[in-house]
Nucleic acid binder design. Sequence first.
DNA 1: TTGTTTTATCGTAATATTGCAATATAAAAA
DNA 2: TTTTTATATTGCAATATTACGATAAAACAA
Lengths: 107, 107
Amino acid sequence: MGASKADFFSEEQNEIASLFKAISHPARVAIIEYLLKVDSCICGDIVNELPLAQPTVSQHLKELKNANIIKGNIEGTAICYCLNPETMKKMENYFSGISKSLNTKCC
Amino acid sequence: MGASKADFFSEEQNEIASLFKAISHPARVAIIEYLLKVDSCICGDIVNELPLAQPTVSQHLKELKNANIIKGNIEGTAICYCLNPETMKKMENYFSGISKSLNTKCC
DNA sequence: TTGTTTTATCGTAATATTGCAATATAAAAA
DNA sequence: TTTTTATATTGCAATATTACGATAAAACAA
């Protein structure tokens, strides 16, 4: 069909999948790395950093916000974006948990 | 358009994006978590664990293999799958690197 | 008020992904 | 050999994503 059969998987599996789906596009990786590079909130400016039109960037920012990967604070005409440390930690923990319980003698 | 404008992003950004794209689907998250749960190579058996038809599972396994997230060893008629510890570590490191250089006083 | 700036939304075309039936392939068993 | 078992590939329909022009909305300046 094309739609994922989300109903057949656990809530947690669907959550993890959509969290990583948010960073499964190079534009969104670029946004994350830009926010990391400037090391502060960025008001405006993101559109000029990417080789994409403004509506497209806005759409990618919306997806990152929905996934809780970035936070956006309204500052007058502009919006201040920054990374959400908690979500970064959550994703780190997902993999460190896997690494810990991995039997490396396998295969 | 629909296609991502991959040419305009860095090699590294495209790599990171396709790595996480591999775990952006609940079926592939379920495969990872099943391999983790059994804590050993699994020969066959994966198809029966998922609510999907055999060709669909095969397709998901192929994507996980292409992303180096799982390894598959042929064992006669069956194929032994297990997680790739190096890729797990790589993904963990991506986020721990972000967490480390994150200015948490922001926003 | 009007104009400017910044971000969001709508509508839609191009492309990608998902899922599966049918079929193919490959190795072992009978 | 034929049959069985396990996995892969092909082809296609249904759905999702990506990208952007046009437009809207919101805040501020003049």
